[in-house]
Design a protein around this nucleic acid. Sequence first.
DNA 1: CGAGGGCTTGAGGTCTATCAAACAGAGTGG
DNA 2: CCACTCTGTTTGATAGACCTCAAGCCCTCG
Lengths: 268, 268
Amino acid sequence: VPKSNQPALSGFLNRLLLRSSLSAEEQDAILGLRSHAVQARSRQDLVQPGRTVSHACFVADGMVGRFDAMRGGERQITALHLPGDMCDLQSVLCPTAGWGLMAIGTSTVLHIPHADLLNLVMRYPAIALAFWRDTIADASVLSKWVGNVGRKDARAGLAHLFCEIAVRMEQAGLGTLKNFRLNATQEQLSEALGISAVHINRTLQALRAENLLIFRSRQVQIPDWNALALVGDFDPTYMLIDRHKEAAPSAGFSRSAPPSRGPASARQ
Amino acid sequence: VPKSNQPALSGFLNRLLLRSSLSAEEQDAILGLRSHAVQARSRQDLVQPGRTVSHACFVADGMVGRFDAMRGGERQITALHLPGDMCDLQSVLCPTAGWGLMAIGTSTVLHIPHADLLNLVMRYPAIALAFWRDTIADASVLSKWVGNVGRKDARAGLAHLFCEIAVRMEQAGLGTLKNFRLNATQEQLSEALGISAVHINRTLQALRAENLLIFRSRQVQIPDWNALALVGDFDPTYMLIDRHKEAAPSAGFSRSAPPSRGPASARQ
DNA sequence: CGAGGGCTTGAGGTCTATCAAACAGAGTGG
DNA sequence: CCACTCTGTTTGATAGACCTCAAGCCCTCG
């Protein structure tokens, strides 16, 4: 039975507020979304590739991976979602996606009806913009992911991946840059980087030997953050954090929307 | 001097209409956008990574690549944009992106002021949704790109890349599935797939020997489309073409936006 | 016709995959 | 409390894909 789940959704609101401004009413509307909690064990599929869904998945606890599946069954993880992330906000407008979603470690996911999200989008244009902006941030991370997988060797790629996770873990309030818990197996890391699990293991050992990264019994330690960021060629700019709230005023726009320069007069 | 450029922009409108419905007024508003044409030679940078821009780039002619640059200068192309594509619609809301844009072959690009696009977005909520949906389609392609680069060998990756380009070329009205012109060098293909140019050359020769793909003097021939799609594990679903127009009604929503089930009553 | 960019080819080296087996740790049941 | 099982990690050896460097070739354009 769908019900309200304010405490968990406040994480989503926080994520949106990182990049967008929303009025009190709009914030309340988001916190008031109905949801339906679902538990998932590690490796369990939440959404199978190509399936049409009528709800979005919000990560309340644990971690969720978005993946692309090959014909042979191998998977390439294309994004990781931490608590506070809406994995497939995209599905609101495009309910049939090509990707799938799987749990990384035991996770709790809230299903949120598309109908309700659409309702929000239609009532509050500022929320529509905030959602769009969230999709943009997601795409920016994805874009970097391509570079990470395509042009870096295992050492640099792994370093970059851990840097990204560290930053987002800290943002989500789940640890510090240098110390956090990560419920992912080496095999799942290998699916994220597109290399074999065996090679992940050897690369982790190499990074460990250099005292750059320690990943043992689900706990991550980064003794020298700057050194690891250097190895991974990591620059957090691409995460689009807290920098564009003023660039495109979404708050207050629902009041009047004064046209500065009418496009009509410029035609022809 | 910015001026109207209707004939070129109609390509953009067509692309939007592939996935969204827009009223006559909204369509006119898009066609009436002011723009400023810019010529670019092959390899020339249109937007450097990390730079803040105040205009979006629309491809009027040629091809544009989005790329992620590594510290050493190597590039990973993360997306290709054909005529009719707005390369960085994202920049309207997030003007400082982490990626760059470069010309693939001689190209003509229209610069469109963010101010005007924002204006459209604020006046016409349906356009905002159409833009969001366009960003989603872009992200879906990007997601597939990760799998292509991460989990496929050179043969399959190259086959998939050519399949994708073929479909989009046909959509853009620039050729057929089996025959089109491609102004990209082997080196640029190598930057797209994250492998060396030499290896691209050898892989092209292998595909040529199998009579799967012929790429000579900028002309592409695909004698047996299905065979190539099989080699590349290509399934066009991910391109989100013409399938979701009815799923999320954006047309007509600006008229009334009747709330089906008020989220307010569901709270608590 | 010359110059230059792009393509092609060869040889050797590196990174990463694959396979197989041993090992470790957490949870289970007797 | 001790096997026992299961998943995940570690290790070794071998094979394959791909890279790098370097040189020669070809086409196109001025």
